[in-house]
Design a protein around this nucleic acid. Sequence first.
DNA 1: GACTCATTAGGACAGTTGTCCTATTTCTGA
DNA 2: TCAGAAATAGGACAACTGTCCTAATGAGTC
Lengths: 191, 191
Amino acid sequence: MSAADTRNMIVEVADRLFYENGYEHTSFADIAARVKISRGNFYYHFKTKDEILAAVIERRLSDRGTMLLQWELDAPDPLARITCFIKILITNQTKIMAYGCPVGTLSSELAKLNHPLSGEAVKLFTLFRDWLTQQFEAGGCGPQSGEFALHILSRSQGAAMLANAYRDPAFVQREVDEMCEWCAKRLTRTS
Amino acid sequence: MSAADTRNMIVEVADRLFYENGYEHTSFADIAARVKISRGNFYYHFKTKDEILAAVIERRLSDRGTMLLQWELDAPDPLARITCFIKILITNQTKIMAYGCPVGTLSSELAKLNHPLSGEAVKLFTLFRDWLTQQFEAGGCGPQSGEFALHILSRSQGAAMLANAYRDPAFVQREVDEMCEWCAKRLTRTS
DNA sequence: GACTCATTAGGACAGTTGTCCTATTTCTGA
DNA sequence: TCAGAAATAGGACAACTGTCCTAATGAGTC
């Protein structure tokens, strides 16, 4: 197997384990066991655990980036696109209820650890923040767009947090609906 | 020193360290160093780390419980009381920006660890949830009170999450103001 | 087939973890 | 004052952590 394949496999598995069990709670041994390579072999691909984390964050940034681009192709207007974002809460409901939001929980964990890559994790937030801002701007919200973006981001995070705590689908649905309504009121329809 | 005093000291220090550095990232040694007792002496007061966690959660439940009671004494009507809740985001702004919400981050960490006391941590949410529900009921929101309570809890969590990520006081202030406004619209004033 | 270089396996290493035991000290009550 | 209990100190213990080294294996080229 090529080194790139193995590396990708490591990052993929680490991505999942960091999400499901947390960064600190995931050990080299855990990852190695699932990738089915020896523990020592890690050193060939990644010198430190932080390097894996950096690769995982990069991977998530890339994943979410293409997801956002896809929404721009799939959805005709800004409101529909923002709706796509809000509805991840429902699309990924099962995982969010079990593990919370992948962006929020990582950012919060790294902040507590005072981890040097804490700022990198926040870039995941910023990716969505900037994209949402663009959509609100395109929807005619003008200089308020940035604040609207943060607002929706914030409410999504809150919904994900409580979804994880209470695992109540009805609550998630309500919050999603209200957020969509909130956006609909503020966006001029173009289609 | 009496055993109760030492025990309280341990729980107090553990409470702070669990909040600032996370439960898993805090070791017996860390706590012992700050309480200035020997590591081995822990075993006399707590058999396991989980027992400390249980005591910390109990302490937080009690702390927050008396805080809620105090608000009922200080604030004249339900709107003013709910406003007290919302404004913790500003009162504890510095700590929330540095470490997030003590309730949310603990609940989320324990969920990821699949920790047996995960449910106990959620009780902290429920404490606020039930209290908020009572306030909305007292404010005349009727059967919607429970949903309103969850909604405000959710938005507070989102605001705390992004406050931690971006450390932007203006954002926090905006969210607080909007939440207060949202509540004011739905509560009948009694004073 | 022999040589080279990329990839892997296996284990060494020191440090830390939670847990637990046993002496020693400190305090208390008769 | 002194016995007994309460509280503490110090360290043992195996398990695990991230890091790092070295030897073996693999594939592809001359």
